[in-house]
């Protein structure tokens, strides 16, 4: 029963929450879309937290995404032991980097009095969820080694089955507890995503890289941005 709730119901609940809330929030309340940077109040500690955390988590995110999108290619890549070893080692390194960064961020937030005034309950939730995710992820990586190999054979087909609306939950219910916690935690994180500052990832300023330098907006032209 719990398995059905976590692996068949929760994914859809979190997907609906993620989509609806973030779209509605962007339309109704764009003012709340912000990275809520606290560098202005504390900058030295942020360097040791924010940089490793972001580099680590982006590596991990795209690693998971690659496995999800190209499971065949990743399996083929892993056929050569050295390559599997490199992939596993980089994943593990990124996880430790993320943990180091997140730990730094948490220590900084707790030990800097100025930051307490700008810490919301949602921030604490974000810290707890991310910490849970990274700790369970590391647990998986260390206790259930060669994850990049079995991930593409178990979790990826399960995730695709979710998109086909025929959840094959037996593919993940037979996994070890660590992996199940990591998957369940991901759905919770996903569900909470659009209620927190994490939404800043959705508005990452990638188009800036090819935008013209100056931006001029005319009052009398509707939607009339002109460069």
């Amino acid at each position: 029963m719990l398995n059905v709730l976590v692996f068949a119901a929760l994914p859809y609940v979190s997907a609906v929450l993620f989509l609806l809330v973030s779209i509605q929030r962007y339309r109704r309340d764009p003012f709340t879309f912000s990275s809520l940077s606290s560098q202005f109040l504390e900058t030295k500690g942020l360097f040791w937290g924010s940089v490793p955390f972001h580099l680590g988590i982006l590596t991990l995110f795209f690693g998971h995404l690659l496995g999800f999108l190209f499971p065949r290619q990743m399996t083929l890549w892993n056929l050569v032991p050295v390559r599997l070893f490199i992939l596993e080692a980089s994943g593990l390194a990124a996880a430790f980097l993320t943990l180091f960064g997140l730990g730094g961020l948490i220590v900084r937030r707790v030990s800097t009095p100025r930051l307490r005034t700008v810490t919301t309950p949602a921030d604490i939730l974000v810290y707890l969820l991310l910490l849970f995710q990274i700790v369970t992820g590391l647990w998986v990586a260390i206790a259930l080694r060669w994850g990049s190999a079995w991930y593409t054979q178990t979790v990826v087909p399960y995730l695709w089955s979710l998109f086909k609306f025929q959840p094959e939950i037996q593919r993940v219910t037979e996994l070890k507890l660590a992996a199940q916690l990591h998957i369940g935690g991901a759905f919770v994180l996903f569900a909470a995503f659009s209620f927190t500052r994490l939404v800043h990832a959705l508005v990452a300023p990638v188009p800036y890289l090819w935008r013209p330098n100056q931006l001029v907006i005319w009052n009398r032209l509707r939607g009339g941005a002109r460069f």
Binding site: P30, S34, L215, V216, I217, N219
Partner: peptide, 23 residues
């Protein structure tokens, strides 16, 4: 994020509070 812009008619530089993302 393109929150800052120059107003075409008078050149006043403004910052859209709704587009600023604290970068």
């Amino acid at each position: 994020s393109g929150a800052l812009y120059k107003r075409g008619e008078d050149g006043i530089v403004l910052l859209s509070q709704e587009r600023c993302r604290a970068w």
